[in-house]
């Protein structure tokens, strides 16, 4: 049984087709990178996995069960911005998930439970290299540190799937490669299934195990919204070579140019 399976999924807003004919099976432990032109529905796809959007047609299953129609603790998320709580210190940001799980009414842990949660959160912070900053507020951290915190915060509740929506898009290149190492390390250590959107095709080509390219295969210049994007390439990362990289890049460029012309 696949961890995530999509069966002929469509997403439409009125007559605007965003995604069409999506069929996909992802096994536990895979690391999928999602690339494609902007406006090609990558984020919509992620939001459907998250439960924030529902498919207009078709179905999504998670470990064989229909995907819940709202976000839940089995699917963690890291956004590009606003992923951490500004009013909580670094340590309390990570403890929050543990507290919510253990204290349904008050949302706060006390005594021994609190000590255990703090210990667990500190281990998680150490794993992402943030232990020294545990009493600071997120606004006092750099962008890279905030994303490390967001990862730690998501992983402390042990989600089955980790969704990353361009998590490193706003970071400097040097920091970004540090973050790649960290994500690969966490993925391996926690046995996660990862879906990561990236704008950077190169990132998609070597990070993870599987590359999914979202693109429009049908164009109607008179009605640019009549056809949606679908998965045009679904490749194991090892099998990608230079020629293919150029082809995909050209495809994605063309879609972006078409969209710009249509607009």
């Amino acid at each position: 049984m696949s961890r995530v399976a999509l069966r002929n999924v469509w997403k439409e807003y009125g007559d605007h087709v965003v995604l069409e004919r999506l069929n996909l099976q992802v096994e536990a432990g895979e690391f999928c990178t999602l690339v494609g032109a902007s406006g090609c529905g990558k984020t919509t796809f992620l939001r459907m996995l998250l439960g924030e959007e529902e498919p207009t047609r078709g179905g999504i299953t998670l470990d064989g069960e229909p995907l819940p129609a709202e976000p839940g603790p089995d699917r963690g998320i890291v956004f590009q911005r606003y992923s951490v709580f500004p009013h909580l210190t670094v340590l309390k940001n990570v403890m929050l998930g543990l507290e919510l799980r253990a204290a349904p009414l008050s949302g706060h842990l006390l005594g021994a439970g609190r000590r255990r949660a703090r210990e667990e959160a500190r281990e998680m912070l150490a794993a992402v290299g943030l232990e020294h900053a545990r009493d600071q507020y997120p606004a006092q951290l750099s962008g890279g540190m905030q994303q490390r915190l967001a990862l730690a915060q998501s992983l402390v509740v042990h989600p089955r799937i980790l969704l990353l929506d361009e998590p490193f898009g706003a970071l400097d290149p040097g920091i970004r490669s540090d973050m790649h190492r960290l994500v690969l390390d966490l993925w391996a250590r926690h046995g996660l299934t990862v879906f990561m959107i990236t704008h950077d095709l190169k990132e998609g080509f070597y990070l993870g195990t599987r590359l999914l390219v979202f693109d429009k295969v049908r164009h109607d210049p008179q009605a640019p919204q009549a056809y949606g994007a679908t998965i045009t390439y679904d490749l194991p990362v090892g099998a990608t070579d230079r020629g293919l990289y150029e082809t995909i890049r050209a495809d994605v460029r063309k879609t972006e140019t078409d969209a710009a012309v249509a607009a």
Binding site: E70, G72, I77, Y82, V84, F85, L100, L105, S106, H108
Partner: peptide
């Protein structure tokens, strides 16, 4: 994003109001 994030941490409506919305 913050409200979604809180849900992925398992927060109920009440918990999210109490720990995420109210303090902010």
């Amino acid at each position: 994003e913050l409200i979604v994030k809180a849900q992925t941490l398992g927060g109920s409506t009440w918990q999210i109001v109490l720990r995420v919305v109210l303090p902010q």
